[in-house]
């Protein structure tokens, strides 16, 4: 009986190992690459380019982008010192409004994709944080440096900030939100976000 118990133990150990290894191996650059490839395959798919498919295309893009971002972290960092003053309900609403705003502003740019190349330059990891450097080469051979900042949660990497040409997205909104909040009120900020999000 004993040897079978032992082999069973070893076998189960191997099984556990086999399951946990791929989870641990999650690589920030690999994940960014996957998401980018997914988005590019949607954008360049000719079957989705017809006007009747725009809704489906938008939905697919939304899904691909949405799962890679940690929206609460982005919103929390953008509101910065004002985040703690908000109630749980307000926070939830703000995360939703802010993520919608970002999607609205940036997905339009993604949809204008016209054969730009993406070069993966490298990643740096430090504990639960990582940065991935990417270069986008336009058709006119100009390169735009982009830096993704990611945070690990449950063995997955999520983006919480994007720097384009060295200008951070979070910092941009942080200064804007801060000046709005100091001049007027939180209600005014939410109102402005809503107005921006209304479809034209």
């Amino acid at each position: 009986m004993k040897p079978t118990c032992f082999t069973r133990g070893v076998l189960s150990l191997f099984l556990v190992g086999a399951i946990t290894v791929p989870l641990l191996a999650a690589d920030p650059m690999e994940e960014i690459k996957q998401t980018t490839d997914k988005i590019l395959s949607i954008v360049t798919n000719p079957a989705l380019k017809t006007p009747s498919k725009t809704v489906e295309r938008e939905k697919l893009l939304h899904q691909a982008v949405y799962e890679r971002f940690d929206w609460e972290e982005v919103a929390r960092r953008a509101l910065a010192t004002h985040w703690a003053k908000r109630t749980a309900e307000e926070k939830r609403e703000f995360v939703r409004l802010f993520s919608e705003l970002l999607e609205r502003t940036y997905l339009k740019k993604v949809e204008d994709y016209s054969g730009e190349k993406v070069l993966y330059e490298g990643e740096t990891k430090e504990g639960d944080y990582a940065t991935v450097k990417v270069k986008i080469i336009t058709k006119k051979e100009k390169d735009i440096p982009v830096e993704y900042r990611l945070k690990k949660e449950e063995n997955n990497w999520f983006i919480y900030d994007v720097s384009i040409e060295g200008v951070s997205l979070v910092n941009n909104y942080r200064t804007q939100f801060n000046s709005i909040l100091l001049q007027s009120s939180y209600e005014e900020l939410v109102k402005r976000l809503r107005e921006k999000n209304e479809p034209k």
């Binding site: 960092r77 910065a80 010192t81 944080y129 951070s168 942080r174």
Partner: peptide, 28 residues
């Protein structure tokens, strides 16, 4: 420095992770 919203503070000798480089006007 644009202050953040985290409850955790950077310890003395620690690192400020979020940095933004100088913008090269000429290049832009």
């Amino acid at each position: 420095i644009t202050p953040g919203g985290s409850e955790k503070a950077i310890k003395p000798g620690g690192r400020i992770r979020e940095t933004q480089p100088a913008i090269d006007m000429e290049e832009l």
